[in-house]
Each structure stands twice: as C-alpha cells, then as structure tokens.
Nucleic acid binder design. Structure first.
Length: 395
DNA sequence: AGTTATGATTAACC
DNA sequence: GGTTAATCATAACT
C-alpha cells in the first residue's frame, strides 16, 4: 500500500515538476549583472588579484611614455581602490562559501526528507539552482554597491576638477617661457611636451611639487593659446615680461653683436637703445616697421589679427629694458620668436596708425587661429632668421 | 560675497 | 589624434 502510493506521488510530482521546470529553466544572462561585471572588470576590481587592475592602468600610463605618471594623487586612489577590491573579493568569497554551505545543507535536508516524501533528483537540482540564483542576486547587490563605491572614489580622487591645484610658480614660468618664445607656433611636439612636463615636474621645491603630465602640458597650451588669442591685450604685459626675460638669458652670447649697431652713437650703447625705443614710439616707427615686416613676411606666415586695432596699443610697455633685451638677443636663433613678439607690437601699433593689417608678424591668421606656420621658427631661424634679423633689427 | 584666474572637460572639427 | 571654443569647477584674489 505504502510503496504504491509513493510511486503515484512520484509520478504526479514528476509531471508538475516538468511543467514548472520547463517554464523557468533558462536563465538569461542578466544584462545588468553583465554591466556591473564589465565595469568592475574595467575598474580593475574584479580582474586578477593584487596589482591586476591598478597595475593595468599604471602600465597603460607608463607604456604611454612618461615614466613619471601622476602618482601623487594616484597612489592614494590606488590604495583605496585596492581596499575596495579586497573587501569585494572577501565578501564575494564569503557569499560563495555561504552559498555552498546552504546548498549542501538543503540537499541533506531533501535527502533526508526523500525517505518520507517523493523527491526526484531533478527537483533537487532545481532547488540548487534556485538557491544559486538567490545568492547571485545577493552578489549582484554586492557588485552594485562596490561599483558605487568605486564611482564615489573616482569622483572624489580622480575628478581633478574637484580639487584643482594650480601649477607651481616655476612650472608656469617654464611653460610661459616656452609659449612666448614660440609665439609664432606655440604647438610643442610630443617630445617637447614631455620635456616640458619633466622640467615642470622637477620644480625646485619638490615638497609639494605638482607633478605635471604631458596631458596637462597639452591642456595648458590649449588654454594658453585660446586665451592669449582671445585677448592679446590682457597678455601684453606678460608677453613683454617673458620676451624680455628669454631675450636677456640669451643676451650674453649676443653682447658683442650689439655694438655693431650702425645707426647711432656707439659711444653710449645704453642710450642708443633708448633712442631706438623712442624712435619706435615716435616718428620713424613706420620706417622701422616696413623693414621689420618685410623681413618677416618671407619667413613666417603673415598674421592677421582677428579683431585688429586695439590689440597692440600699449607701447608704454615696450620700455627700454624689454626692447633692449630683445635687441640683444636678436641674433640668437631661439630668440627670433621673442624678437618677433616685441616687434609685433610695433607693427601692431603701426597697423593701428597706418591701417595696414597685412603687417603683423605673428602666426595668427585672419580666422583667428595660428597659421600652420609653414616654416616653424625653429626651422627658419638658423638659416635665414638670425642673419637678416640681426642686421635689420640692429639698424 | 563677488570676481577673476586657471586647470580640466567636452563637443565639434579637421 | 590633436585642436579649438565653450564650459565647468575650483583656487585665488578683491
């Protein structure tokens, strides 16, 4: 009697179980879970152990070129990230273990019960899968919260906008020096950027020395170019300052050449320059400019000012010092741009007066962008630059 | 507080 | 892929 009843129950269960099973057997890969998995993998949380994820990012950065990545704030970030990863992994393991324990427990229970009620092995299997599903949903929660944590960490540490730090004085100095001494074509090559980044990172006071990356150099130049172009007047003072500075640094080498100025009073070289300055400001400015512009129209692209006129008005800034410096450094090839800048002011001034927009020896073109300097200063200066520049300017 | 300076991000462009 | 131009968000200044 009893065995017969048991078998009947078995059959019934088998049938209902089949129908249920058929309906929910397929378990589609949850897209959200996939998303989370992918993200965790991308963030280096779910990937291989120790050093896997963070090292991947670091390796990518290192492989990109600069051995000195932006590690100052990165290290902190990395530490936190690995902390998260550790928590994640231990939790995950715990869940896994709990899942297994629970599964075996349930299986034991079912096996025990199978003596008193009919339980097919398929049913056990189904039970197990249900348990697994439950646990995986818990795991998903874990993943989700981990993702959130990573996101928060990211926004806290990596979003540089949040805690923007100005570059050190020296770094800005270096960048500005390069910018104004390559004013006609302020587009540093990749190597130049790397060099600048390196130089900027080795700021003298390396206490809080903001390590500067190539990307930051690019950012800086991008910003500088656009902002300089947008309001040249605002940068006049700065431009003069750096023009003078860079010129002065090269002055030593060129000291002798200065004496050759044919025009006037070799007796008092100092006053001679002053005179020149005055000349510029006053009557013979036009004459000068024709000379100067003539020599530049050939070498560098003409440079039409976007909103001409009011840009080069501050002649006062062109005092004896700065101009003198430019003069002195004129025959040094790397100073051509500096010279050009100083000259450009006079030319610009002339533009205003004479209304001839053609003469503007910068690299800016009419559209407001720097021309693709058909002949970059570094190329033209050694060949035709220094000679002509020197002879012309000393005059 | 309001303003300016500045580094970073983004979309559009080539 | 690098630039430009606009924009954001914060630092620094008034």
């Amino acid at each position: 009697m009893k065995p017969a009843l048991f078998s009947v129950l078995c059959e019934i269960k088998e049938k209902t179980g089949l129908s249920i099973r058929g309906a929910q057997e397929e378990d589609p890969p949850d897209p959200q879970l996939m998303r989370l998995d992918n993200m965790l993998l991308a963030e280096g949380v779910a990937g291989p152990e120790k050093g896997g994820g963070s090292a991947a990012a670091a390796a990518a950065a290192a492989a990109a070129g600069s051995p000195t990545d932006n590690s100052i704030e990165h290290s902190d970030y990395r530490a936190k990230l690995s902390q998260i990863r550790q928590i994640y992994h231990t939790e995950l393991e715990k869940y896994e273990q709990a899942c297994n324990e629970f599964t075996t427990h349930v299986m034991n229970l079912l096996r025990e019960q199978s003596r008193t009620r009919p339980i097919s092995p398929k049913e056990i299997e189904r039970m197990v899968s249900i348990i697994h599903r439950k646990f995986s949903s818990i795991q998903m929660q874990l993943k989700q919260s981990t993702c959130e944590a990573v996101m928060i960490l990211r926004s806290r540490f990596l979003d540089a906008r949040r805690k923007r730090r100005n570059f050190s004085k020296q770094a800005t100095e270096i960048l500005n020096e390069y910018f104004y001494s390559h004013l006609s074509n302020p587009y540093p090559s990749e190597e130049a950027k790397e060099e600048l980044a390196k130089k900027c990172s080795i700021t003298v006071s390396q206490g809080v020395g903001t390590t500067i990356t190539v990307a930051q150099v690019s950012n800086w130049f991008g910003n500088k170019r656009i902002r300089y172009k947008k309001n040249i007047g605002k940068f006049q003072e700065e431009a003069n300052l750096y023009a003078a500075k860079t010129a002065v640094t090269a002055a030593h080498a060129a000291a002798a050449a200065v004496q050759n100025s044919q025009t006037n009073s070799p007796t008092t070289p100092n006053s001679g320059f002053q005179m020149k300055d005055e000349e510029f400001q006053l009557d013979s400015a036009e004459n000068k400019n024709t000379l100067l512009t003539n020599m530049f129209t050939g070498s560098s692209g003409s440079f039409n000012l976007p909103n001409s006129g009011d840009l080069f008005m501050s002649m006062q800034n062109l005092n004896g010092d700065s101009y003198q410096g430019a003069q002195v450094g004129a025959n040094v090839q790397s100073q051509v741009d500096t010279l050009r800048h100083v000259i450009s002011q006079t030319a610009g001034y002339n533009d205003v007066l004479g209304g001839n927009p053609m003469y503007s020896p910068h690299g800016l073109n009419g559209n407001g962008g720097w021309q693709d300097a058909t002949t970059p200063s570094s190329v033209i200066s050694p060949t035709e630059g220094p000679g002509s520049v020197h002879s012309d300017t000393s005059n």
